[in-house]
């Protein structure tokens, strides 16, 4: 904070102060000496995030995988409901960091969403609006939500018309919202449009559960991400949920867990 104040407030004095030292290296011409100072100043006073490429924050693990290191406002993200389970948890963890940072989220047509899990994964429930049963007019409702809500999660409840899909994508782009589509939950409700980023859980393993002992404590998911425009090569990486639990800790804990009632009785 203090840095910025000095840089912006003393436009004249900052380069001048560094003048003598730099003058020797650059052959003593005052103009040359000023240039690096001005560049530094320009970088300081530039917007932290350019308005065009505003990103919503995600957790560091997901940021490594996503082509732009975050959820770009105006983009459409598809989460493939694939062979391996975990798409819902992945979606919730996509929302978490942005939600904590103050973004508003909405979940449309997901009546069975586990809200305790959402809270556990870091989604702020005060800023999560749920429309569990949108009925036939779900695309109108999503369009209304995109107007102001930052992230809208949709699991299409019925067949998606191409026209509706492209209208929603365009609306999200125009309003700077992120549309997250849980794609392929039912055979008929495929998302006919392309998505800017497509995520798929390709592998999932659980820790904490033995045979008759322990309890589910954490999972490792392998997530494959495909992007657009120069990021079409799939990238995969491993994600641990919940994020704050190191894997070695889990391995150690399994043996030491209290035995459930079955083993006693």
């Amino acid at each position: 904070m203090f840095d910025t104040v000095v840089g912006v407030g003393s436009t004249d004095s900052a380069p001048r102060r560094s003048g003598p030292a730099l003058a020797q290296g650059f052959g003593g011409r005052d103009q040359d000496a000023r240039r690096p100072g001005l560049t530094a100043l320009a970088t300081r006073s530039a917007p932290i995030v350019r308005a065009a490429a505003r990103l919503l924050e995600v957790s560091p693990e997901l940021a490594e995988l996503l082509p732009e290191g975050g959820l770009r406002r105006g983009s459409t993200v598809a989460v493939e409901v694939g062979a391996a389970p975990g798409s819902v948890s992945l979606t919730l963890s996509l929302l978490a960091s942005a939600s904590v940072a103050g973004a508003w989220c909405a979940a449309v047509a997901i009546p069975d969403l586990g809200l305790v899990a959402a809270e556990e994964l870091g989604v702020v429930l005060e800023r999560l609006a749920l429309v569990p049963w949108p009925g036939e007019q779900w695309s109108l409702i999503v369009a209304a939500l995109i107007e102001s809500v930052d992230i809208v999660v949709l699991r299409p409840p019925s067949r998606v018309r191409r026209r509706d899909a492209s209208r929603l994508t365009a609306r999200a782009r125009e309003r700077g919202a992120v549309l997250v589509v849980l794609d392929g939950a039912t055979r008929t409700a495929r998302w006919p449009e392309g998505a800017d980023v497509r995520l798929e859980v390709t592998g999932s393993s659980w820790s904490g559960l033995g045979s008759g002992c322990g309890h589910l404590q954490g999972r490792d998911m392998t997530v494959t991400v495909t992007g657009r425009r120069g990021a079409t090569r799939p990238r995969s990486g491993s994600i641990r949920l919940p994020a704050d639990m190191p894997s070695s800790f889990l391995q150690d804990r399994v043996g030491a867990l209290d035995t459930p009632a079955a083993q006693v009785g």
Binding site: L130, V131, V149
Partner: peptide, 27 residues
């Protein structure tokens, strides 16, 4: 006025689905 905008959008959806159409969860 982001929050006010969200409130309006949600009120509009409630207008379409009734007050119980848009809910929020308390754990």
């Amino acid at each position: 006025l982001g929050d006010a905008g969200v409130a309006r959008a949600l009120a509009r959806v409630q207008g379409m689905l009734g007050p119980h159409g848009v809910v929020t969860a308390v754990v």
